Amino acid sequence: MVKRIGSILVFALLGVALASPAFAATTTANVRLKDLGRFLGWRDNMLVGYGIVSGLAGSGDTPRNQATRQALANALSQFDMAVTQDQIQSRNAALVIITGTLPPTANVGDKIDINVTSMGDARSLAGGTLIMTPLRGPDKKTYALAQGPVSVGGYRYDANGNLKQKNHPTVGIVPLGATVEVPVRADLVTQDGNLNFVLKDADATTARRIEQEINQTMGAGVAHSVDARTVAVRAPHDALAMNDYVARIEALEVRPDQESRVVVNERTGTVVAGGNTRISAVSISHGDIRVSVVTEYTASQPNLVSVTGPGVRSMVVGNSDLSVEEPGQTVAASFPDGTVGDLVQALSRTRVSTRDVIAILQAIKAAGALHADIIIQ
């Protein structure tokens, strides 16, 4: 049995490797405004509804599911059929929840995809067809009608106690299964006549750079940064030119500012850090100790013992040998000013494991030499 105490090995080659131009820090490239944020008011709208999937081959909800029986009775009553819940015993139908996303530019007649999920005790939705169901928004208004055959990427078959299942057969989709009935208008212009560009990640420096780029391209005074997340842009006077105006702004490119972070995952041994994350001058020293415990078993059988029988056997003796090995010298290295990228690449060249790199970064952070936040997942 070999037990290893300590794990950080830092070589004197660090000072040479880190000075190499090959490990120079990279700068952030320009990014389109479309990828950095969106205009306030330009958003998707969530739709939801519940309905019935019919045509199942005995894999639907059981008769003890009262919600399904009530839904079937209500549906049949729309066709002047007086059927009570107690008269419904079929397992060829299932009660489902339907969800969909309404885009901000949806018009009447547009088709959208919908998801269908079982909310009862159905075993599978394979082969079923969704009956026409209204989809509503948060305001309780109907915006689309859903209907069509359900596509399930799995199956479930059982017989005589044997079960075969693939993926989740109680979840399916209906491609282009909903038709938009009410158009949606994206109101981008605020009451003060501005377009508000909202950043995905709030950063005052990035907002300031966006303001400068828009004013340089679209004209002085067109944009001003309200806060670290919002940049207000003066809307055009001609409403018909709004789409071209927004497209020009979204195509502009700026260099976003990045917050220094180091993300480590000790379970998978992953380290992710920005190329410009700085490390001050620091010295690292650590040793490696190996403790080895070896046990040898021998049998004791004296020659004078010649009597055999119940209760007479050889005695097994265990001899343990404990040894401690320590390197002849403790390795120390001085790390000049640099970046996390330089350090990680240098450690990789010296064949230091990823988990050892994580321990080194945590120790440097504790020493106050790592100018970044360490996020441990």
Rank of each mutant, 00 (worst) to 15 (best):
E211Y: 09
R209K: 15
N215H: 04
V226D: 02
D227R: 01
T206H: 13
R229E: 13
G219R: 02
D201P: 13
D238M: 02
V233Y: 08
A204G: 01
E213F: 12
H237F: 12
H237R: 13
I210C: 09
V233D: 07
D203T: 12
P236V: 09
M242S: 02
R208D: 05
V226F: 12
I210N: 05
D201T: 15
R234E: 08
M242G: 00
A204I: 14
D227W: 01
D201W: 13
A202L: 04
Y245C: 00
T205D: 13
T205W: 14
H237Q: 10
I214W: 08
A235Q: 03
M242C: 05
A239Q: 08
S225L: 00
Q212H: 09
V226P: 01
A202F: 09
P236Q: 01
R208Y: 14
S225R: 03
G221D: 08
H224N: 11
V231Y: 13
D203W: 14
D227N: 14
A220K: 06
E213L: 11
G221S: 08
P236C: 03
A239D: 02
A241D: 03
R208N: 08
D238Q: 10
A232Q: 07
A223K: 02
T205H: 11
V246L: 07
A207V: 13
A235T: 13
L240W: 02
R209A: 07
L240C: 01
R229P: 09
Y245P: 01
N243C: 01
M218W: 13
H224M: 08
A241G: 00
D227A: 11
Y245S: 00
G221A: 07
T206F: 15
I210D: 05
V222D: 03
R234N: 07
G221E: 11
A220E: 06
I214T: 00
A235N: 09
A235H: 08
A235D: 11
N215V: 07
Y245F: 14
A235K: 04
I214F: 06
D203S: 12
E213T: 00
V226M: 12
T217F: 12
A232P: 03
E213H: 05
P236W: 07
D227P: 15
T206C: 14
D238A: 06
R209W: 13
A232N: 04
T205S: 06
P236T: 04
V226W: 03
A202C: 07
V246Y: 03
A235S: 14
A220L: 09
E211G: 03
R229D: 09
R229C: 14
V231C: 12
V226A: 09
V226T: 06
A223W: 10
A235C: 10
P236H: 02
A202Q: 11
R234S: 07
V222R: 04
T206Y: 15
A207Y: 14
A223E: 09
H237I: 13
D227L: 10
Q216F: 10
V222I: 09
Q216C: 00
R229L: 14
M242D: 01
A241M: 07
M218A: 06
V233Q: 03
V231F: 12
A204S: 07
M218V: 08
R208H: 11
R229T: 13
Y245N: 00
I210K: 09
A239C: 02
S225W: 02
H237P: 01
V226C: 07
D238H: 03
I210T: 00
